[in-house]
Design a protein around this nucleic acid. Structure first.
Lengths: 85, 85
DNA sequence: TTTCATTTGTACGTATGTATT
DNA sequence: TAATACATACGTACAAATGAA
């Protein structure tokens, strides 16, 4: 995955699909320490609002980061930063 | 994954979500030999029609089987049965 | 106990883009 | 030109579980 500016916004007009952009941005924010391990990131609906994309798109981004072991999801509770393995 | 009847249909009222049901059904059909290795399975739209579910749901099922190395996708060409590893 | 808000899970339909046939 | 097929994104709706009030 590319390196992203943790303060970047999602660009709807570029060649990189928004779901990949957001995954990169969130990875950068985790790396920076915006959220401590075992702490929840903002809810999907909140992220959708903040980045101006659909919740279904946010979910695709999160799925990427879960696959990369950066996040884990607890149904009905939230999405959490995974402690370093 | 559970064992499925390759001739089963998708049940919208049961506890198992359709995308998991279809993944199981397709796995059973691959196992049975409905499609040879390196041959394409029906298109997503076709599967959606045949099983009475949305195309987006079909795609979730396929994603599961890609992850399990039963299928591989060639963009703009189709979804193919992976030869045994 | 009941109610309510929050959050993720699932499913649907629609639209547009790109590449191949 | 047209049809086909996958990639991406949007919005909507409802279900299920949790936890707070």
């Amino acid at each position: 995955m590319e390196q992203y500016d943790p303060d970047a916004q999602v660009d709807h007009d570029g060649p990189v699909p928004p779901y990949k952009q957001l995954a990169g941005i969130l990875a950068a924010r985790i790396e920076r320490g915006d959220w401590a391990p075992n702490r929840a990131i903002p809810a999907e609906t909140r992220l959708a609002q903040e980045y101006g994309i659909a919740r279904s798109t946010v979910r695709r981004s999160i799925a990427l980061l879960v696959e990369r072991d950066l996040l884990f999801v607890v149904p009905q509770r939230g999405t959490f930063v995974k402690p370093r393995q």
